[in-house]
Amino acid sequence: MIEINLLPPKNLLSKKEAALRRRLVTGAISVSIIFLVTLASLLVIESYWDRRLTDISVQKQQLAAQFSADAAKAAQLVKLKNKLMGIRMVQTTRPDITAILKKLTDFRSIGGVTYALEEVSVNGNVSIKVNCQDQSAFNAYVDQITSPTTAKFFNNVTLTAMTLNADGTFNFDLTGQFDKSKL
C-alpha cells in the first residue's frame, strides 16, 4: 500500500520543534526541581545548624559564667595541686644525711672508740677524727669500717695523721664516702 503525505514541509518541521520543546521543558522542570530541592535542603540544614550553634553557644556562655563564679574555688584547687606536685618533687630530691648519721652511730658502738670531730656532707663524704683507747679498739674499728659488708656502702676510706699517744691511745683522721643508694 502506498502512503502519500499531503502535508506541507512546514508541518514536518513543527514536529521536530515540538520534540525539542518537550525535551527542553522536561529538562527545565528537572533542573528546576533539583535546584530547588537542593537549595531548600541546604537552607534547612544551614538553619538547623545555626539554631544548634546558637543553643550550644548560649549553653557555653552559661557554663563559663558558672565556672567564673567558682573561680576562687578553682584557684584553690590549682594551688593545692601545685603544692602537692612541689611536695612530691621535694620529697624525692631533698638532701638527707639521716641514713649516714645512723651508720656513723653504728660505727661508734665499738667499745673504746670516740669521735673527736665529725663532718658529714650530703654527698656522702665524711671526715672524722677518731680516738681509740687501745690497740684492740683500733683493730676492731678498722676491721669494721673496712669489712666487705661495710665496703658495700662505705668506700674511699683513708686513715691519715695516725698518732700513738704516750697513754697508749691512738688518734687518726678518717675520711670516706658513703654510697647513699646502698644504705
Partner: peptide, 20 residues
C-alpha cells in the same frame, strides 16, 4: 636531724659538723 627530716614543713639537712 632525723626529726628535722620528717617534720611537717619540708626541710632538708645537707651538712653536719660535729666537734666533741
Amino acid at each position: 636531724v632525723s626529726r628535722v627530716q620528717t617534720a611537717t614543713q619540708l626541710l632538708g639537712a645537707t651538712d653536719l659538723n660535729y666537734n666533741l
